[in-house]
């Protein structure tokens, strides 16, 4: 565990908690893409099936458990408890167009052709594009509430911090995982436009509003 990895995990955890708290306290999931949340739940479940056969540490187990539970709770809020506030007209991204290619790619390019490794690889590929429905929703409505922006910033920073972690591990431990690195770069690049708007607008107290 190095500082980048720890900060990445904390940023990831913060993002998930901010989102749940936003939905819970405002009793509304307006502006949040249920499609992205479904993709994240698939990502966590596919990747953390290793909870069943690999023990790493208490930290590892607890974090994986929290990510799966929190993402399922978010889906429950969006599709059941606060269903009336869900903006499904704008949330029209077709997630099968992300799931199918990620699955095909995982079958073709993986570390080992075994069910758990393929699911792990699938989760890495799917995670890299899972935010697209959310970014699509923001671009359709042309704006995002500041709390939604904070959520997106924390979520985007997490993989960026993981990239620094991988650079560090390459030099310090001679370890690198090309699948995770390439997917992590794609994932982080997808947020760049948002990061720019976040830094130039939201941090200066303005609302995140896209140019018309």
């Amino acid at each position: 565990m190095n500082i980048f990895r720890l900060l990445g995990d904390l940023s990831h955890l913060l993002a998930i908690i901010v989102l749940l708290l936003k939905i819970w306290t405002t009793r509304s999931c307006a502006g949040i893409s249920g499609k992205s949340q479904i993709l994240f739940a698939i990502v966590y479940i596919a990747r953390y099936l290793d909870l069943l056969n690999t023990y790493i540490s208490a930290y590892n187990t607890i974090m994986k458990f929290v990510f799966i539970s929190a993402s399922l709770a978010t889906i429950f809020f969006m599709y059941v408890k606060f269903k009336a506030t869900y903006d499904h007209n704008h949330d029209s991204f077709r997630i099968e167009f992300l799931i199918a290619p990620a699955l095909v790619l995982a079958l073709l390019i993986n570390h080992e052709f075994s069910p758990l490794e393929i699911l792990w690889t699938f989760s890495i590929y799917l995670e890299s594009v899972a935010i697209l429905p959310q970014l699509f929703l923001v671009s359709k409505t042309g704006e995002a509430e500041s709390i939604t922006s904070h959520y997106l910033f924390a979520l985007g920073s997490y993989r960026g911090l993981y990239l620094l972690n991988w650079v560090y591990r390459y030099y310090a431990e001679d370890h690198y995982d090309l699948i995770a690195i390439v997917a992590g770069v794609v994932q982080t690049v997808l947020y760049c436009d948002f990061f720019y708007l976040y830094i130039t607008k939201v941090l200066k107290g303005k609302k995140l509003q896209l140019p018309a």
Binding site: H12, N60, N165, D177, A180
Partner: peptide, 10 residues
């Protein structure tokens, strides 16, 4: 060790 590294990260 490679696989463990993969399962260690979140």
């Amino acid at each position: 060790a490679e696989a463990n590294n993969r399962h260690d990260e979140l």
